[in-house]
């Protein structure tokens, strides 16, 4: 499965357009990480735990999107976009969407 955020790919022709596919996940962090982040809020700097958490969640969202694309018989997802929104305090929704296509 080819995943890209461009509308066209060099040297490839789109033979069929299969519509929008999407994947999303809502994640929250456990208390230990929250405590560490609270400390970091005093000292400043990167919150590595949160970076990892969001990366994992984003991968999960992409995997779900890819699974949906496979289900409709696509071999590539183009024009992928990401979006993040905080649903409640301490939980974030990660959303990935794109266009499922069949490339020649």
């Amino acid at each position: 499965m080819l995943v890209s955020n461009m509308e066209i790919l060099p040297g490839k022709r789109i033979s069929e357009h299969l519509g929008l596919v999407q994947g999303s996940t809502v994640r929250t962090k456990h208390l230990g990480r929250d405590l560490m982040a609270g400390l970091k809020n005093i000292f400043g700097g990167e919150l590595k735990g949160y970076t990892e958490l969001l990366q994992e969640a984003r991968e999960e969202a992409v995997n779900r999107m890819v699974a949906q694309a496979e289900a409709v018989g696509a071999n590539a997802v183009l024009n992928v976009r990401f979006s993040t929104s905080s649903v409640t305090a301490g939980a974030a929704e990660l959303f990935a969407y794109g266009t499922a296509v069949i490339l020649e």
């Binding site: 790919l9 982040a37 809020n41 400043g44 970076t51």
Partner: peptide, 23 residues
């Protein structure tokens, strides 16, 4: 994509960071 005659394959890449401001 550029039209410079070179064959290229496309792949999605990401980079992310969470960063906090100090007190």
């Amino acid at each position: 994509p550029p039209h410079d005659g070179v064959q290229r394959a496309g792949l999605l890449v990401t980079g992310s960071v969470v960063i906090s401001v100090d007190y």
